[in-house]
Nucleic acid binder design. Structure first.
Lengths: 200, 200
DNA sequence: TACCAAGTTGACCGCCCGGTCCGTTTGCGG
DNA sequence: CCGCAAACGGACCGGGCGGTCAACTTGGTA
């Protein structure tokens, strides 16, 4: 079943990394309509080389998304072993926001929803967020009526709202994460008007 | 200085409305890359007619944005006369979210940032939000360290986070508006790590 | 060092986009 | 009801896109 994949040639491996880095920068700067030709130019390779490494533009996007989800998943797993689950949840949200602030490619997620590699990693990350949230709720660090799905959809909010500012400070998202997290705390919580959603 | 603009012919006026409605639907369903040809087809007119009414695609987008900002501004002005400024602010955020939930074209805002008509209306709306927020803060309905700019960037958040759900209930945004608004209340507020931003 | 598979390249293809243009149709004042 | 300006429609244009391919270069190995 398993294929004895030969290692990439040295120049090919280097070009692959150059391409991923260039594509990430290009998407972060120019948005979701960045062209493959521009990405190739930024990486200093021909356009044909892009398609040798990634069969379609969508495959390239999926590779970038995976590269972003991976360290997030690692962080989530590490934080699952922390004693203070509330602080762990807050730090996870900080790590996620900080990563997005550097290179915001969140708009690529929807363009790679069909790739199994993205789906698998995304689901594992989702489950880790559920666990983080459950632990924080059990310790009374967040309100009783908040679920992992709530946290899941709120991950992106701090960075997103900052994108409406003309020249935001690099850490501006911290202000809005703090506001939102205050809304998640048990103290002074008002009843929620809608039941918690699911992902199905 | 003023031009004696003749009234539109009956069919032209009707087509203009058809086009605006069709474009709004098309953008809401297909996203920011909807084509002018598809919009014309949905409106039941030729492509040339689109460009008779709106010189460029950007002009069409700006007209849609203005059509969305106008009722929002009206609502904000009305709510400025309410007694309970905290409830007024919450209702303004509800009106804004409810409108966006019906036809989310918020991604068009950035594509029409150069149009004076959009800029003027947006600035007037912004000032109204400042006033609404100042009144709510003075009445102690929201925390002392929150500003109108904070509210301004948070307007879009409830609808945005819901967009990450596969089949959201029409009122799902209310859950997240409630969470965020709890974070804006004075009770149990933790100090904010970053100063309030400005729009310049 | 000589060989060749692996890798690179950029011209090229078909497609679709925003925008133009002119021949045709139509609403409406006299 | 007539005449015409206003409005309409769709073929057409230049340009940029994702993706292909055949000629060329190069890294690793025997």
């Amino acid at each position: 079943m398993s294929e004895p994949v030969r290692p990439l040639r040295a120049d090919a491996a280097r070009n692959r990394e150059l391409l991923l880095a260039a594509a990430e920068e290009e998407f972060a700067e120019r948005g979701p309509d960045s062209s493959v030709a521009d990405i190739a130019r930024r990486a200093g390779v021909g356009k044909g080389t892009v398609f040798r490494h990634f069969a379609t533009k969508e495959d390239l996007i999926a590779a970038i998304v995976v590269q972003h989800l991976e360290p997030l998943f690692t962080a989530a797993q590490r934080l699952l072993t922390a004693d203070d689950a509330g602080a762990a949840l807050l730090e996870f949200l900080s790590v996620a926001a900080d990563q997005r602030q550097q290179h915001d490619v969140s708009f690529l997620q929807s363009a790679s929803e069909n790739h199994t590699s993205v789906i698998e990693l995304r689901d594992r990350l989702f489950n880790a967020v559920i666990e983080l949230t459950d632990r924080a709720r059990e310790q009374g660090s967040v309100r009783q009526d908040v679920t992992g799905v709530d946290i899941w959809v709120l991950i992106c909010a701090p960075v997103h709202v900052v994108s409406y500012l003309p020249n935001p400070a690099p850490d501006q998202w911290r202000r809005y994460l703090a506001i939102i997290f205050d809304g998640l705390r048990p103290e002074g919580a008002h009843p929620l008007p809608q039941p918690a959603p699911t992902l199905t």
